[in-house]
Design a protein around this nucleic acid. Structure first.
Length: 916
RNA sequence: GCCUAGAUGGCGGAAUUGGUAGACGCGCUAGACUCAAAAUCUGGUUAUCGCAAGGUAGUGGGGGUUCGAUUCCCCCUCUGGGCACCA
């Protein structure tokens, strides 16, 4: 009987499905375990081999935990709102819901092919009204909350209103505007609009103004992705910054908790560092510099108040509000030109650009400590959104300031003596200050507190903690997203009540943008007539809480029953890519904290353990067409021709050799192609790139499953290397894994003899191999080292095969071990051996040390660190015995030969090293 | 530019806590079986010198710590991911 993988896989998938083998209950005596994948965006291109990497890993772990006796929640769903579906709609007029559903069906078919153990009864789709009803509901929780700084948690905004009514806002300073002060009497005197405007500045979801990438020609807002060097990706039209009304989440209020919460969860150190760098907590001071000949001050934020005597110029962001007011007529033209230039550039370009740009405003500030006049410059390296949008530049201590000063020939004051060499800035805090008046002779880090005291005494500033993180922009001028449950009446935002949810996304005639930078919803008369908000929520809205909905997906009365979320609690293992480090992973932590504060769930971190899967890259292949001809030149010959490089479908290339016949048939353009070959072959060029349909480097898992089976595919994806590591896809090695399964199969059935497995007691040698494998595979799976687990399976089967072992007792145990990796294969042979029930519900083998005991070890003997020989010695040999045996050995004597032994190092169970 | 991860044979990778570098697999190669092919099995496969025994070098490059470094420290190069409206 041959290994007919496709028949076996289809058969067991049908049986599991029929028996609802993967349905999981919210009630169980077993301990719970929650394994979650980052749900996919269902793109039109379908799954490529990169997607399932994490899904296979999580499936293996889920099945493993299940065999170990856990009640495992392992759900899947779709992050279904998003820009690509909307663009497809604009171009083809197909409703995003329709294309999205089509894509989801395709994804589902592809996922099913691979044999995952998802409980599909719990599937969620963020674009379903039954789902986004609760996204809207959570938005309302955010809208109706403020962050109480004294208890560091979210509370209902009504509590704030009663505080305002009794004591004003003296104890609850406004997070948006620290200068806003009012008494209880003031509050009562305010109009409704005034009151609501103030409350808006406290809400966790609030409306404000922000800058977006605006493309006049397209009449729409663009994502950073859609902007290339200041021009739109589509059409190449100019893009500039525009201020629009935007919704935000007040994530900055949670900055400290998001930071300290990292200590309670198992993310990689790298991931934690990325998040804390993103949050960017810094301690510094705000200082007001009086502006020369102008009524007012320039407020700067600095982490180095100690360097205040080294300030040689000020730099303000191009968006800074003061620029217009302080620029004298003499400089207006240059300043306007510079600002126009900056406007055309994305923030990314502004930060990344090595080129130094800037211009002098013609205005000056006065240094409050020595009355020196300091010029005010504008430059794009200062960002409006961070600190106060203005800095004091100290060229001797800051690299960017130094380069700026050099570039514009601004004289540099040295306040750190020998520590500054005039060639590059020295950012030390350890130098002794000079040229610094009352700070002379003081070490910089000690001077910080002194200056802070002084600026407070002078009434020109205060010490301040700052965060690099900004509030999260939460609105998009798009169609395909959740509508805000908000009505605008007379400039006041009124939330819908809970029973008005969901606010359904209306039908539109076309998906083009609305007027004045508004989204498509602004084109709908009935919508506008109802005064509904015309923005929609961003992609991350639905993904910020989906892990909660899986727990209780059909609940019509709540986003998730509290009892149910108490049972499942945190996600025990979350698998996904690092590309979500500072987006999704931060937002879902925020939402969890808010829901916790408001008492809706009982935990304030969503993910207990995060495993980052690496990205599978594509390995692109190229052909080289001689310019203006139909002649294609093999890779190593292109030096002799003028050629254009074209992507060619990797599936038409065997290794590097192009299937020229398939190529000619690929596209009409290539039908009459001619080839210049090398050694009779056309050799393609290679590059590693992101896997993408447009680069023709995608490999479809369906094809591989068809050719080798799901079990082979699953094991091969794991065998490729550590899950956490990125690597280019190469189908070549898949044969090896397939051979392994065929070999394993032959331990049950021989081509000639038929059934060969037997029900006989196992020998000590066989049990030793089995238990070695149990230990290693269990440990490897537990620590997510799936690649080494696969090779352990190979070793185990090779060894059993060599012993001619066909025994049910041994094979049954190996099959259970194999179940998480190759479930169909294991299930089939489990049945063949006549075992009871399904192997997916079996009990994981128990490792027993007694079977693998060793009495001696082959020690490597090195001399001066180089291994020269091996000597077998008893495990319990004493150090003295070891000395005697080693030194008595002929091989060792040959190397020592007359030399003096300085030292003999013996590490029990490891090695011996002789130092001469 | 900033943050972050990584670099080991022809290739994917292994070496879990500083202790035999190259497990396992691919590829290549020789052989067995076969009319032949496929499949399968057996052997070899880091480089270099050597008939061999064996020697020497070797984990991106350069330095260091150590009896001993792929592993720890410093400097450099290259590559992947992220940088706030892609998901």
């Amino acid at each position: 009987m041959e290994y007919q993988f496709r028949a076996i896989e289809k058969k067991w998938q049908a049986i599991w499905n029929e028996q609802k083998a993967y349905q999981v209950s919210n009630v169980s005596d077993k301990p719970k375990f929650y394994v979650l994948d980052m749900f996919p965006y269902p793109s039109g291109a379908g799954l490529h081999v990169g997607h399932p990497l994490g899904y296979i890993a999580s499936d293996i772990y889920s099945r493993f935990k299940r065999l170990k006796g856990f009640n495992v929640l392992h759900p899947m769903g779709y992050d279904a709102f998003g820009l690509p579906a909307e663009q497809y709609a604009i171009e083809h007029g197909v409703h995003p819901l329709k294309s999205t559903h089509g894509n989801i069906d395709n994804f589902r078919k592809q996922l099913d092919n691979i044999g995952f153990s998802y409980d599909w009864d719990r599937e969620v789709r963020t674009c379903d009204a039954s789902y986004y009803k609760w996204t809207q509901w959570i938005f309302l929780q955010l809208f109706n909350s403020y962050f109480d700084r004294s208890s560091a948690k979210a509370k209902n905004i009504s509590e704030l209103v009663s505080i305002f009514e009794t004591e004003g806002n003296g104890n609850n300073l406004c997070p948006s505007d620290a200068h806003l002060k009012f008494t209880a009497a003031d509050w009562k005197a305010f109009s409704e609009k005034e009151q609501q405007d103030i409350l808006m500045q406290y809400r966790l979801a609030f409306c404000g103004y922000g800058e977006v990438n605006w493309c006049e020609a397209l009449g729409t807002v663009l994502a950073n992705d859609e902007v290339i060097n200041g021009f739109s990706e589509r059409g190449g039209h100019p893009v500039e910054k525009k201020r629009l009304r935007q919704w935000y989440l007040r994530i900055t209020e949670y900055a400290d908790r998001l930071l300290t919460g990292l200590d309670t969860i198992q993310f990689s150190d790298a991931m934690k560092e990325m998040q804390s760098n993103w949050i960017g907590k810094s301690y510094g001071a705000e200082i007001d510099f009086a502006i020369h000949n102008y009524e007012g001050a320039l407020k700067v934020y600095t982490t180095r108040p100690d360097t205040v005597f080294g300030v040689d110029f000020m730099v303000v962001a191009p968006e800074h509000a003061l620029i217009e007011k302080i620029t004298p007529d003499t400089h207006k033209t240059v300043v306007a030109e510079y600002i126009a230039y900056v406007k055309s550039r994305s923030e990314r370009e502004r930060i990344a650009e090595k080129k130094i740009t800037g211009c002098f405003t013609g205005a000056y500030v006065v240094n409050p400590f020595n009355q020196k006049l300091i010029p005010i410059w504008i430059s794009e390296y200062v960002l409006a959104g961070y600190g106060t949008g203005a800095i004091m530049a100290v060229p001797c201590g800051d690299d960017r300031d130094f380069k700026f000063a050099q570039h514009f020939n601004i004289p540099i004051t040295n306040i750190i003596g020998d520590a500054f060499d005039g060639i590059e800035a020295n950012p030390t805090k350890e130098a002794i200050l000079t040229n610094s008046d009352f700070l002379n002779g003081i070490v910089q880090k000690d001077a910080i507190a002194i200056v802070n005291e002084k600026i407070v005494a002078l009434g020109i500033g205060q010490s301040k903690v700052n965060f690099r993180m900004r509030d999260a922009a939460f609105s998009r001028q798009r169609y395909w997203g959740e509508p805000f449950p908000i009505k605008w009446i007379n400039g006041i935002a009124y939330p819908l009540s809970e029973n008005e949810l969901p606010l359904l996304l209306p039908e539109v005639d076309n998906y083009s943008p609305g007027p004045d930078g508004q989204g498509p919803l602004a084109n709908i008369e009935s919508w506008v007539a109802e005064n509904y908000e015309t923005n929609t929520m961003p992609g991350y809205a639905g993904s910020s809480w989906y892990f909660l909905r899986y727990m209780d997906p059909h609940n019509m009365g709540a986003f998730c029953d509290r009892k149910v979320s108490d049972y499942w609690n945190q996600v025990d293992l979350y698998i996904g890519g690092t590309e979500h480090a500072v987006g999704h992973l931060l937002y879902s932590r925020l939402w969890t904290k808010v829901l916790f504060d408001l008492g809706h769930i009982g935990f304030d971190e969503p993910f207990k353990k995060l495993l980052n899967q690496g990205m599978i890259q594509g390995s692109s292949r190229f052909v080289y067409r001689q310019r203006g001809t139909h002649v294609y030149v093999s890779a190593s010959l292109i030096g002799n021709y003028e050629v254009d490089q074209l992507h060619v479908d990797v599936n038409m290339v065997d290794g590097l050799e192009l299937d020229t016949a398939a190529f000619k048939k690929w596209k009409p353009d290539f039908a009459n192609a001619e080839f210049i070959l090398e050694e009779g072959k056309y050799i393609c060029g290679v590059e590693v790139e992101k896997m993408s349909k447009s680069k023709f480097n995608t490999v479809n898992p369906d094809d591989l499953v068809e050719r080798y089976g799901a079990d082979t595919f699953r094991m091969y994806e794991m065998f490729l290397g550590p899950v956490e590591q990125s690597k280019p896809w190469d189908t070549k090695g898949i044969e090896g894994v397939h051979r392994f399964l065929k070999k394993f199969w032959r331990m049950f059935f021989d081509e000639m003899k038929g059934k060969v497995w037997v029900d006989e007691p196992a020998t000590a040698a066989e049990l030793k191999i089995l238990h070695k494998a149990i230990k290693k595979i269990e440990e490897d799976t537990e620590r997510y080292s799936f690649n080494t687990a696969v090779s352990t399976f190979m070793i185990c089967i090779n060894e059993l095969y060599d012993l001619g072992c066909h025994k049910k007792e041994v094979l049954s145990q190996v099959l259970i071990l194999l179940t998480p990796y190759a479930p169909h294969f294991a299930e089939e042979l489990w049945k063949v051996l006549g075992n009871e029930g399904l192997v997916i519900n079996a009990t994981y083998p128990f490792f027993e040390a007694k079977y693998v005991l060793e009495t001696s070890k082959e020690y490597p003997i090195s001399i001066n660190g180089k291994v020269r020989t091996n000597i077998a010695m008893a495990f319990d040999a004493t150090e003295a015995q070891v000395h005697e045996i080693v030194l008595g050995s002929e091989a060792v004597q040959k190397w020592i030969e007359g030399k003096e032994i300085k030292k003999l190092i013996f590490v029990k169970g490891k090695m011996v090293n002789i130092v001469l």
